[in-house]
């Protein structure tokens, strides 16, 4: 779904602008993210997706670890928990089990989720516990000023890969799928509308939903790798660097080189952890919550 509107000579409003104030905590903006950082765009897509569900703010918990993406919960009016580096999924798991009716959304980054938190990531997917995991993937450790991350492509420059990164990057979606997540998708900050739709589907999904969100860090990744402006990064990495699933289906592999596939990549029904646990309680003769 491409949302870029074609200019029309009409002066009529298509819609009133979305009112984020229901979800933004008073006095918390402006946020700490750098000029041109895509995190704010991702957050706005999330808030619109949450709004579409029609559920109360009380029903959502936003849990995060450490890093730029992990500052998300502080700005929004939900049950919010900003935890340790890499550990958001473990806190989220405990919370979900104590309060199964809460819709738990984890906002995490490529470093937080896949490096220090890699073990929790694969095990959370394996359990298929009902949870949305949003990986804000900007290929860099932004909070600590620009070191290469587990998703940084080979050859790219970071403060700890001045000669070009020699490590192979993870593919977040492949990793999630292989680990057992039952909803795997990729979106970008550039494709804000598509991302909103994916996030809505992810929230409605019962099971572990992982969304690899391609996002830009102009301050570090952009500056080191010769991108002139935030919008140039969005164009080159998020727009030109990705291709919708449907469009990719008919193309030969050589045409897909260097492109990441966008959309809901994998979806499957599989027993979900909290439901399975409720059955276990019944089996043990206990009373379920």
């Amino acid at each position: 779904m491409e949302t870029a509107a074609t200019p029309k000579k009409t002066k009529k409003a298509k819609q009133t602008p979305f009112d984020y104030s229901k979800y933004i905590r008073g006095g918390k903006l402006p946020h700490i993210w750098c000029p041109g950082c895509g995190h704010g765009i991702v957050l706005k897509s999330l808030l619109r997706a949450i709004d579409t569900t029609g559920r109360s703010n009380n029903d959502f918990a936003l849990v995060s670890g450490i890093g730029c993406s992990s500052r998300t919960p502080g700005y929004v009016d939900f049950n919010t928990l900003h935890t340790l580096h890499g550990r958001a999924l473990a806190y989220a798991t405990g919370l979900k089990m104590a309060k199964p009716n809460l819709k738990v959304i984890v906002t995490t980054g490529d470093g937080d989720a896949l490096a220090i938190g890699g073990n929790h990531f694969i095990h959370t997917c394996r359990r298929n516990i009902d949870m949305v995991i949003m990986v804000y993937n900007n290929y860099i450790y932004g909070m600590t000023s620009g070191q290469f991350s587990p998703t940084t492509a080979q050859g790219m420059i970071a403060t700890t890969s001045r000669y070009g990164n020699i490590e192979s990057p993870f593919d977040v979606c492949k990793m999630a799928e292989a680990s057992g997540a039952t909803f795997v998708a990729r979106g970008t900050a550039y494709h804000y509308g598509e991302l909103e739709k994916i996030l809505y589907e992810a929230i409605m999904h019962k099971g572990t939903a992982v969304i690899d969100i391609i996002d830009s860090c102009p301050t570090y990744y952009g500056r080191f790798n010769k991108f002139k402006t935030p919008s140039e990064m969005m164009e080159k990495i998020e727009k030109e660097g990705t291709i919708p699933l449907k469009q990719a289906a008919g193309l030969p592999p050589e045409k897909l080189q260097g492109k990441l596939i966008r959309g809901i990549i994998y979806k499957k029904e599989r027993p979900e952890y909290t439901s399975e646990y409720a059955k276990l309680v019944e089996k043990a003769g206990g009373k379920s919550k």
Partner: peptide
């Protein structure tokens, strides 16, 4: 489980301490 409580075997001790704090907030 007999009391409707939750027992979880986590992936490591780090996850364990984090999970109990998450559950406590719940």
């Amino acid at each position: 489980p007999k009391f409707g409580g939750v027992f979880m075997q986590m992936e490591d001790e780090i996850a364990s301490i984090c999970a109990i704090v998450g559950a406590s907030l719940g």
